[in-house]
């Protein structure tokens, strides 16, 4: 099987995981998870250099921080399918005594997670701190982070965005999931953020656009370009245009599935649109 076929298969399988996880507990966030599936698959399978064993300090490897912690289904599925913990554990998502909490946490010792997230707007600062620790350790590896677009409404982001350029944190690639949706509706309607690209540029960042944020090839190309832009005295931002709910037709292009699980019938339709590839957990 070609590598690209494997990635495509993985995307389909992760979509199935997401749908089944949230359906089982009738809660969780499928919309943003599906929208970022291709990004996570690419990041963990092609883009990041990772050590074999999980270690909190992450010396000698690239690190990822998820700031918009509510898209934990895609995070957990991809971590499990990349070998961080047994795939069967996805069965415990949001159940009592599980390591797979509603929002990601270090508290239960789940390999792959380095910070709790859920309360929005905190991940950029954490990623910057980890990036500065890498510099102090003379570790040339990179820090990746992901943020929701609605999440940029949290003010702490702008403290962090200002700081990262002022302090030349150039070993950081912060990706913003530009799906244009948030809980109460379109981001433009809830609180129009204007031109996000211009804002990052005005704050002194290098900005890379990935127009087709649900296309693996486009993601790999854009992230490679982003990596090439690191080490130039400026932080790098990737604006990833995605479709919320991607891959399940009735969930696409709407905020309705931000935090809502499919019922039995809807699950069946979603799974039919994404036939099993690598085996369900």
């Amino acid at each position: 099987m070609s590598k690209s076929q494997h990635l495509e298969d993985l995307v389909i399988q992760v979509r199935r995981d997401i749908l089944r996880m949230v359906h089982k507990v009738n809660s969780g966030h499928p919309g943003g998870s599906l929208g970022c599936t291709e990004f996570f698959v690419a990041l963990y399978n092609e883009i990041m250099e990772q050590n074999d064993e999980f270690n909190m300090d992450g010396i000698g490897e690239d690190l990822f921080f998820l700031s918009n912690g509510h898209i934990s289904p895609v995070y957990y599925s991809v971590l499990a399918r990349t070998g961080y913990f047994p795939v069967e554990e996805l069965n415990t998502f949001r159940l009592i005594n599980s390591r797979l909490q509603g929002h990601p946490t270090t508290h239960e010792g789940l390999p792959g997670i380095r910070i709790a997230s859920g309360s929005l707007g905190q991940g950029m600062s954490v990623a910057i701190g980890a990036a500065q620790a890498k510099k102090l350790n003379n570790d040339k590896h990179l820090i990746y982070s992901l943020h929701g677009d609605g999440e940029l409404q949290e003010g702490q982001n702008w403290e962090a965005i200002m700081y990262a350029s002022a302090k030349k944190v150039d070993n950081l690639i912060a990706t913003v999931d530009l799906n244009g949706q948030q809980i109460d509706g379109a981001t433009d309607d809830v609180l129009d953020m204007g031109d996000v690209k211009s804002k990052f540029e005005a704050f002194g960042w290098i900005v890379i656009d990935i127009e087709e944020g649900n296309n693996l090839e486009a993601i790999l190309k854009g992230m490679a370009e982003a990596k090439n832009k690191t080490g130039q005295q400026k932080p790098v931002c990737v604006l990833l245009k995605t479709v919320m709910g991607n891959g399940v037709d009735f969930m696409m292009h709407t905020h309705a599935w931000h935090g809502k699980a499919p019922n039995d019938e809807q699950l069946a339709i979603g799974l039919e649109q994404n036939p099993e590839t690598l085996g369900d957990y």
Partner: peptide, 22 residues
Amino acid sequence: FQIGIAEANMMGIAAGLTIGGK
């Protein structure tokens, strides 16, 4: 690390710096 008048960012950066043994 001089953070400027941005205490929320300071706490987050501090948390991040621990990842790497600081």
